[in-house]
């Protein structure tokens, strides 16, 4: 018999990585120039978690997926137009700031509060999903802190697969060094799973899914609770964007070995 799950996916937004991102320092510390006007996407790691959650819910009838996301309402709304056609979920928006490097403790507190306030959420069926990493300013601890605040002790990171068993327990594959997976068995919900890439492709856009989602997304956005994230005295001395390089030229007569050697030299330039 299938397990009925309540899956809460914590997903942040990231500036569309295809845009030109420019670091800047504002009154609140380092940030990205004009972030509010850059198109945003659902953080790709968290998006993997969302697709896995939807797939798991589909295999276990009666299950439900919530998407908890913190950001300015207008940005959330924009991102929902690209996400909501993919899988079914109920949005739990938290109207908060975007930009800069918010304190992970403050973010986790806001997310945990939002999760605890979800009506009808059954802790005995609760799986909290999120991204193991973030495409932008990932503190690497936010999801764990959410779990701690919710009192969930079973936590897994770098998850690529979850397999539910009939008795409610589940097997988890976590990424470890050497390209291998660590296999764990958990007695059951509640648990926190920080997803790596998972195994699912990005779902196709389904207009009917989009229409169904929008019936709850728009009212939820209108009622979104506002939060202010406290800096808690946190200060960033400096931040850097990943170095980007691109060099192109046409070569018709180089051998594969010569091309490979040049590429290795090019990569190693950064390490010298």
């Amino acid at each position: 018999m299938a397990n009925v799950l309540h899956i809460v996916v914590c997903a942040g937004m990231a500036p569309d990585p295809l845009q030109t991102l420019e670091p800047t320092t504002g009154p609140n510390g380092p940030g990205i120039k004009n972030e509010m006007v850059l198109p945003a996407v659902l953080d790709p790691w968290a998006a993997s978690a969302l697709y896995e959650a939807a797939s798991l819910a589909a295999k276990n009838p009666g299950s439900k997926v919530w998407l908890v996301s913190l950001g300015p309402k207008a940005k959330l709304q924009q991102v929902m137009m690209t996400v909501a056609q993919k899988v079914g979920f109920e949005l739990v928006p938290v109207d908060g700031p975007i930009g800069g490097f918010p304190d992970a403790h403050a973010t986790a507190a806001a997310l945990a509060d939002a999760i605890e306030a979800i009506p009808g959420l059954d802790r005995a069926r609760l799986l909290v999903f999120g991204g193991w990493e973030s495409a932008t300013r990932g503190a690497g601890v936010t999801l764990q802190l959410v779990g701690e605040r919710l009192g969930i002790v079973d936590q897994f990171q770098g998850v690529d697969q979850i397999t539910l068993r009939e008795d409610g327990s589940f097997e988890v594959l976590e990424r470890v060094e050497g390209g291998k997976h660590q296999v764990s068995v958990c007695a059951g919900a509640p648990a926190v799973l920080g997803w790596a890439t998972g195994n699912l492709p990005e779902p196709r856009n389904n207009p009917q899914v989009g229409m169904a989602n929008m019936r709850t997304i728009m009212p939820a956005l209108q009622k979104a609770k506002s939060v202010a994230l406290e800096a808690n005295g946190l200060k960033y001395v400096a931040v850097n964007l990943p170095r980007q390089q691109r060099e192109t030229r046409v070569e018709k007569n180089l051998s594969a070995e010569e091309i490979a050697r040049e590429i290795v030299e090019w990569i190693e330039k950064d390490n010298r």
Binding site: M81, T82, G210, M218
Partner: peptide, 13 residues
């Protein structure tokens, strides 16, 4: 437009 709640604009479609 989308903040109005009356219309849905779906990109990527």
């Amino acid at each position: 437009l989308m903040a109005s709640g009356l219309v849905q604009i779906w990109p990527g479609t």
